[in-house]
Amino acid sequence: MPKLKLIIITAMIILFSVFNGLQVARSGIKGFFAGFIVTFLFFTAVFLFQTLFYIVSVRKLTATGELDISDYQSPFDIWLISIPMCVLMMVTYLFLGWYVVQVYICTAFGLIGMLLGNALGRGSRKWTLRKSMPFFTGVIASTVFSMLMGWLV
């Protein structure tokens, strides 16, 4: 099951990268591969960092009694929210003709970061940087990505 989820998440990352590549190519300044490679590498880096940070944090928070292990949510389950985002991105691009792939990617970083933070117990008991870190990194990733796209497009 985790393997299937990982395959689906990878497919979503590839689709996001393909459509962003198409959008970058549409602007005519840089080609498809520039957009594709930058998006793929950046998205993969964010995914790996967020997921590994979450797994390590859950262990620490559980060890100190700040998180009940029965509340554990698989990070892959949380990343599955990229499915609706990716499908909607394709519908928007292909049927509505709105070329806003970057909005989808940036919102995905922000929202998934928020969900990972919530799963770590963000907002409950004592505030710690560890619990809020996925949210902060999601926002930072979103901002850095939009700056990268400003450079590409």
Binding site: I81, P84, L88, V103, Y104, L111
Partner: peptide
């Protein structure tokens, strides 16, 4: 679009 995605949450 950003609003719609937040609605899905």
């Amino acid at each position: 679009i950003a609003g719609l995605l937040c609605t899905l949450m």
